[in-house]
Amino acid sequence: MSTGYSPCGPDAARLAYLDLMREIEDFYYREADLLDERDYDPWLELFTEDVLYWMPMRLNLPWEERAQDITSEEDTAWIHDDRATLEKRVRQIQTGIHWAEEPLSRVSHLITNIRLPAPVSVLPEGASVTVKSRFFVYRNRLETETDVLVGRREDLLRRLGGELRIARRKIVIDQSVLMAKNLTVFL
């Protein structure tokens, strides 16, 4: 590994890294619980005011163009939200007449493969760290309608007021033609 954590490093740095990783894992598990228990207001508080919540699309491209098979930030996307729009999505569900989520779907978020591509041991106030993870999201609604949404997330987590906050979220789903009729579930 070129930077940051080394398994052969000083014990203090190793312990600090493990402590930070536990904090990050716990952050994601709490986020999953908030979403799956429909506790959307505290969920919104996990995001910074300047967050970009972005879900690009996937293309079928030749091998030599594989690096472009995720649409860029200047392209269209499934979702390209700022904080205000994210809040509106929550408020829409809370109206009780957002028919696509009324009655609510049953959802489970499984978050795994949490990894820091450039590991750090400490995250001081105002500092940020990139965190990669996988999601496996099961959605079932009404009688038998079922969707499985699987892919990767790449978050930028920032420490603000001592807490972790999501400053940027990139959601990369493993589908080109989306097989769910809508994306009313937060990923």
Binding site: M57, L59, T71, E74, D75, T76, A77, W78, S176, V177, L178, M179, A180, K181
Partner: peptide, 9 residues
């Protein structure tokens, strides 16, 4: 603006 959104309903 970019590539199409494609999805199945």
């Amino acid at each position: 603006l970019g590539v199409p959104q494609k999805w199945i309903i």
